[in-house]
Amino acid sequence: MSEGDVNDGEDARDADDADDGGDAGESAGNSTRRKPVVVVVEPETPGNVGTIARAMKNFGLSDLKLVDPPELDEDGEAYGFAGHAREDVLPNADEVTFDEVVESYHTVGTTAITGEDDRSHERWPFKTPVELRESLADVDAPTAIVFGREGRGLNNDELSRLDEVCSIPAADDYPVLNLGQAATVILYELRDLTVEETQLPDTAVTRAPETDVERLHELFGDFLEATGQREHRREKNALLLRRLLGRAHPTEREVHSLLGTVRKATTKLEHADYLAAKHDEPAYPRE
C-alpha cells in the first residue's frame, strides 16, 4: 500500500490533471463521468478492508483510500477477503489523511444514525443510496464516498466537514450494518454510474410468439368447454387467463409446455364424456 497525497501533488479539482481514482477519465456506459473513490476512515479490522475492496471490484471501482488503516498483511484477512481485488484494488490503495480527502473531493459521508430533523445539521438532511445515485447521475466531479469506523462510524465533527450524508434504510431497532456490508449496499446502488456492463443478459425474458400465446388461449377455451362449465363462467376464466399471461410474459418453452398439458387434459375430458355416453352412465359431475 502506497502512502501519498490523494492527488499525488496535483489539484484533484482539475478535471484534466486530477488523479481521482486512476479510472477518473473512464466512463460508465457512454458517459465521461469520473467514478467515485472510496475512503475508509480508521478501519479497525483488515477483513473489512478486504470486503470493501472486493465490493469495489464487483461494482466497477478501483481507487481505495485509507485513513490510518491497520497493517494489511498479504497473508492476512484483508487479502483473504478481497477475492480478485487482491490483485489490484487492495495493493494499490493509498494511505491519506482526512484533511486531504475533504480538500480534494466532493464528499459523501455515510452513517447509520441520522438526525430526526434539521436541528441536527451534522446528520441531516440525508440521502438514501438510491437518492444518492440519482443526485450524482448528472454530475461530473471528483467524488469520494467516505465510510467510518466499525464501532463508531464517522463522528459529528467529521460529518460536519463533509458535503453530503448518505444512510441505508434499515430496521429501526437495529439499523447499524457491518462496515463491509454497508459499503457493499451503497456501491451496489451506485452501479449504474460505475459499471459499464454486467454479466446479466440484456433481457431477462423473451416473450413467446403471440401466435403461440393465442393458440394457448384457444386450447384453454376448449378445455373450459370440456369441463362443462356454464358459458358465463368460461368467459370469465378465459379472460382471467388472458390477463394473467399478459402480466407474466411467458417464454416460448413455458407456453409450449402449457399447450401440451391443456391439450392432454382436454382430450381426457372428452374421452370421459364419450365413455359415459357409450355405456349409458352418468357423466362426471358438472355444475
Rank of each mutant, 00 (worst) to 15 (best):
L72E: 04
T45L: 13
P175V: 07
D99W: 01
T110Y: 14
I186L: 11
H84R: 13
F126S: 04
L187Q: 10
P201K: 10
N48T: 10
D173V: 04
P70W: 01
D75S: 09
L190Y: 01
R253T: 15
A141S: 12
D14T: 03
A53E: 01
P209W: 04
D17S: 15
K236D: 15
D23I: 12
G21M: 07
D273P: 03
E131F: 07
E77S: 06
R133K: 08
D19P: 01
E225K: 00
E74F: 04
A277W: 08
G21K: 09
S62C: 07
T111N: 02
L275H: 09
E254L: 08
A18K: 11
R215Q: 15
L269E: 09
V89G: 11
D68C: 05
A85M: 06
D222V: 03
E150T: 04
T198C: 00
E189D: 02
Q181C: 09
G4R: 01
R243L: 06
E100W: 00
T194V: 09
L64Y: 09
Q199F: 14
E196G: 13
D17K: 15
L162K: 02
V130G: 11
E10P: 15
H232Y: 08
K57F: 07
H279Q: 11
L136M: 05
F98Q: 14
N7E: 05
N156H: 05
L259Q: 05
S27G: 07
G180N: 02
F147D: 06
H249E: 12
N178A: 09
D88M: 02
R54W: 11
V108G: 01
A272C: 10
A93M: 09
A183M: 04
V185K: 02
R191W: 06
T97G: 03
A277K: 14
A85G: 00
E116R: 13
A53R: 03
R34V: 02
V6D: 01
R13D: 15
R119P: 13
R123Y: 01
H106R: 15
G148N: 11
M56V: 10
D99T: 03
V96F: 02
E231D: 15
V195S: 08
R161T: 06
A238K: 15
V102F: 04
E270Y: 06
D192H: 14
D212P: 10
L72H: 07
G76T: 03
G180D: 01
T51M: 14
H271C: 11
R230Y: 11
A265D: 08
S257M: 13
T107M: 06
E287L: 11
Y188G: 04
S2K: 12
A276Y: 02
A141V: 13
I52T: 15
L136Q: 05
F223P: 07
A171L: 12
G115V: 02
D94I: 14
T206G: 00
E3W: 13
E116C: 05
F223I: 08
E87A: 10
A78V: 09
E218F: 14
S62F: 07
A272N: 13
A144M: 11
T111D: 02
P91K: 01
S2Y: 12
I168V: 08
D157C: 00
R133L: 03
F147Y: 12
A144G: 07
P125W: 07
T107I: 06
K65L: 07
V40K: 00
E254C: 10
E100P: 05
G228A: 00
D172G: 08
L177F: 10
